[in-house]
Every structure is written in C-alpha cells, then in structure tokens.
Amino acid sequence: MAEGVPFRGGGYEARPRRWVPWLVFAALLLLWHVASSRGWISANSLPSPTSVVLAFGEMIERGTLQKHLWESARRIGLGWALGTLAGLAIGLSMGIFSLARAGLLPLVSALFPIPKIALLPLFILWFGIGEASKVATIAFGVFFPTVIAAYAACDQVPRNLIRMAQSFGLPARHIVWKVVVPGAMPGILAGFRITASIALILVVAAEMIGAEYGVGAFILATGNLMQTDHLVAGVAILSTFGLLVNWLLSAIEKSVLRWR
C-alpha cells in the first residue's frame, strides 16, 4: 500500500499578488459609486466618486490645486530639510561622541514626546503668524525623530568595523565618513520615512490654524462651506502626496542600500 506524503504547508510564505491591490481599490470605488448613486450615502456626508473627480477637474482648471499644493510642498520641503539637517548633525554627534551623547540625550528625551503642534502658538508669538512659524513647527517636529534615528543608527554600526578601522590606523574623520555614516544609513533612511509623514501631518495642522493657501487650509475651508466633494479631493491629494514621498524614499533606499 503506497500513499503519497501529504503536503503540509510552506510556512505561510508571502507571495506577490500584483493584481490584488488594484482589484481591492477598484472594488471599493465601485461600492462607493453604487452606494452614492443609490442614495445609501447622502452627498452631504460623502460625495460620489464622480463628483470628487469633477471637483479635481475644477480645481485644476482654476489653478487652485497647483496653488495649494505648491504652498504645502514648499513648507514641507523647507521645514523637513531644516529639521533633517539639524537633526542629522546632532544625532550623528550623539552617536559618535560620548560627551554629546551624555549632554544631549536627556534633553532630547524630554522634548521628543511633546506633540509639536502644541508649540505652534509659541512659534507664532516668536516668528509671527506667517510662514516662519509653520516652517519652524515642521522643522521642530522633524528634528527630534531624526536625532533619535541617527543616534540609534550609529549605535547599530558594528563596533568591530570601527575597531577594524582603528586597527588600520584610519584617522577619526575617515572612520566617521567611511564607516559610521554609511553603516548608519539604513537607520537614517528608515527615519526619513517617519519624518516625512510627521511633516505631512504638521503642515496640514499648521495650515488649518492660520493660512490662506495650502492643502490644510483648503480642507478646512471646504469643510466650513460643506463642499464635501472638494474636501475629499483635498484628502485624496494628501494621500497621493504621501504615496509619492514613500515611493521616492523607496527608490532612494534601493539605490543607496544596494549592498544589503
């Protein structure tokens, strides 16, 4: 009596299913469309997908989309760059120098948990209601996670690589640039993903508090006017923006971390 051994599984290995995400997306859109057109959902609560697309068209035609998007992107770009540069400088110093670590770690730990939007009123007092306070809020929000990511990433660099470099007599600055910084790159780039989403949250919040243009200001204004089609279009812009940044960071990771 010969019986084949039954297959019992491959350990739940994840396999790519490229068409599934598109199918799910299409199914949800269809459901949304049907629910709106049959009147299961009132247009005041959630507009139909077609009216959102029409709202998009209208925004592009009038040039408001470009205007809002440009304002938000400028604030994010500036705030993120400032926060990241300062965060990397401090974070890497803390990762490399014991003195910087001992002196700054308690301070960073104490300031890190503050929700940065709570500081916007203070920044408005310091820098005025204009651009500077919004950019400062984003920069501040980006700064702390960058410090923590860079500092932790330095710690992840195997000590043995540093000892190796020392054993060959490499000067300290060579060790920093050739061993520590490249070794910390995976952690630093992972930090960028987090800070990019923080920057997006903060720009919307800051624009809701006081701005004429910007996606956050736009969403708040359309809500006040009950223009839900424009409001949902604004939210879709944020989602697209987030996806775009994510895709960009993935591409950077893929090329910078090819060695992994």
Binding site: L161, R163, F168, L170, K178, G183
Partner: peptide, 24 residues
C-alpha cells in the same frame, strides 16, 4: 589584524574593502 568575523564593510566592493587600508 585578521578578524574572526572578517570585519568587511558590506557597502564596499572587494577591491574597495582592501583599498580602505591604504586610503589614508
């Protein structure tokens, strides 16, 4: 030294790992 765990820089090619010892 020659190290037990090789202590190679994973982001450098073989040639660049060897050259590291000379660059300074």
């Amino acid at each position: 030294y020659v190290f037990q765990d090789f202590a190679l820089l994973p982001w450098r090619t073989v040639q660049a790992n060897v050259a590291l010892a000379l660059e300074h």
